[in-house]
Design a protein around this nucleic acid. Structure first.
Lengths: 202, 202
DNA sequence: TAGTAAACTTACTCGCGAGTAGATTACTGA
DNA sequence: TCAGTAATCTACTCGCGAGTAAGTTTACTA
């Protein structure tokens, strides 16, 4: 039932989605939707929260805290693109639809903030263990925010290019962000510090 | 009148914006809006097209074609953040509201594609003049897409932190993308190849 | 197998807002 | 001053969809 709602919301957006269509797609009648999930807003909110939970869960499950920061980041980035590839609807509801709806933008912002904070924390640790100058928490958060934005943009690219593998997007992100375009132009590329098991059939 | 519509659409989104409010904010009556701009959809579309035109105009005016690619990119990035800071409403309509509205997402995608193509072209030239291996047009477009996404994300950050200067965002973007996080962590930072005139009062 | 509670549906109400018909005001020229 | 017309507004219609009242079926109990 949340699946049906997520599908309809992702296609049509909050306002253009009708409760009739959601009910029909879920194979039940409208009053049942109201009985179980309350109003349309609560239903949308439930979709967002479920998707956000799944996403943050997937990311934090991947980034084992005992790994060095760079490897954690790599694992998190991989998990992120995997999630987007497997839950396209959920992704679209959160970041295409809910963001612009003032009433719900806050929930998405909260989910996003969780991710940004984690990334900022990884940066801080990477910088610390490299012995470099700490740029300060605000600057770190700004960079983390930007990295997450890059990921979101590549996620859209992934949705528009269904035959591209999540691993490709993840590698591209690490290349851009860790190596920098300047290095890429000089022909240097980023490589995973640990061997990546290729998925079967590739 | 387009200003009023842009303001209302940016606050409320397409569906939640009412033509009554737009008319009131523009200081005219509703039938006048319909007389001059047609339907609600056409009005929204007009807002998008105007904003898109202003944005692409600002960017291409900044990036003088005789400059080296890196400097063009720097100029374009600066112009972009300047635009976002000065036309917050227009930016929000395009990238927060219109993106999720299936009917209008195509127009925004078209504007975005223009920008991505320009950036991809700059990459290609930078790579060529550095004598590096050409990664192929698809890969270049993917990277350009990602860079634009990073810019969009930093634009949001800029809107949420009104006391931050567009130049700061522009520098941060170049740092991340040209230098790479790996270099940043080692304490290296990107510097503009030409001196940047500071705005007065800084 | 009648009685009853739970699960579910049909068929409505009601408000909101896009879009418009017809009245009204402001100009123009004689 | 006033006929004619252009510009603009007031006050409506009408459809759509969120939300619900009342009825109906299903499932269970004794």
């Amino acid at each position: 039932m949340l699946d049906a709602a997520t599908a309809v919301f992702s296609e049509r957006g909050f306002h253009a989605a009708s409760m009739d269509e959601i009910a029909e797609r879920a194979g039940i009648s409208k009053p049942m939707v109201y009985l179980y999930l309350g109003s349309k807003g609560e239903l949308f909110s439930a979709c967002i929260r479920r998707a956000g939970g799944q996403l943050t869960e997937a990311i934090s499950a991947a980034a084992a805290p005992e790994l060095p920061a760079e490897q954690q980041l790599w694992a998190a980035v991989q998990a992120f693109f995997e999630f987007v590839g497997e839950h396209r609807d959920a992704w679209a509801v959160m970041f295409r639809q809910a963001r612009g709806e003032g009433e719900f933008a806050g929930e998405v912002a909260g989910i996003r903030r969780l991710v940004v904070d984690n990334v900022a924390d990884l940066f801080a640790r990477a910088i610390h263990s490299a012995g470099a100058l700490d740029p300060g928490p605000d600057e770190l958060r700004a960079l983390a925010h930007a990295l997450v934005g890059t990921g979101e943009s590549m996620a859209e690219w992934l949705l528009d290019h269904p035959d591209e593998r999540p691993e490709t997007a993840a590698t591209r992100l690490m290349n851009m962000l860790w190596m920098g375009l300047g290095s890429l132009i000089r022909g240097e590329v980023w490589r995973s510090p640990v061997p990546v098991p290729l998925p079967p059939g590739q």
